[in-house]
Amino acid sequence: MSRESDFYLRRLHSLLGIIPVGLFVTQHLVVNHFATRGEEAFNNASNFMGNLPFVLFLEWFIIYIPLMFHAFYGVYIAFTAKNNVQRYGTFRNWMFLLQRVTGVFLVIFIAWHLYETRIQKALGTEVDFDMMANILDNPFMLVFYILGVLSATFHLANGLWSFCVTWGIAQSPRSQTIVSYITIIAFLALSVIGVQAIFAFV
């Protein structure tokens, strides 16, 4: 492949991963956490989000378009790497591999999740606490959703690290190590928030 625009596309891919997709994912996990306060709290929050003014515009420009660009270009990036963790089993090389594995898994997870929720809503089904509880009643789906949430939190947290390097924010080995610790904490915090919300439905 040879394109002069590669550099700018890569930077756009990196930026969109954080703004807006990363911010949306964080917001989504936080709002889901209302489920831990009971059915009514979750339904209120979900109705509030689902009935924001200009919701279709917001969905397309904050979520679908940036996410699709990031996801499809991400698949291209993922499949052009020749992973070699057997040769170099370092922490960073594993993170490099996992960033790609979680990314590819997220394409599958997000597609399924959108089909089960947003597309069903467009077809007239009520999206609420009961619907999620029904989905997560199936042990296979429960595991699938937990893996999906953990993949997203990992991919976002590790992506935050590589974002800091890609834009030249963290340069010295020391600053890169400190950013690693910060993103590990972000991964743990977001994972707890996300998984707690899932268990609130079961």
Binding site: S2, R3, E4, D6, F7, Y8, L9, R10, R11, I77, A81, N84, Y88, T90, R92, N93, F96, Q99, S162, V165, T166, G168, A170, Q171, S172, P173, Q176
Partner: peptide
């Protein structure tokens, strides 16, 4: 441009491999 710094995916193997101990990942950042 094409094939340039945008292609780096931060696996950071280079700095581990370099026999001359060149701080490649710091240079890239």
């Amino acid at each position: 441009a094409d094939g340039g710094i945008g292609e780096c995916g931060n696996s950071q193997n280079c700095v581990v491999a370099c026999p001359k101990g060149i701080p490649l990942t710091t240079s890239i950042a």
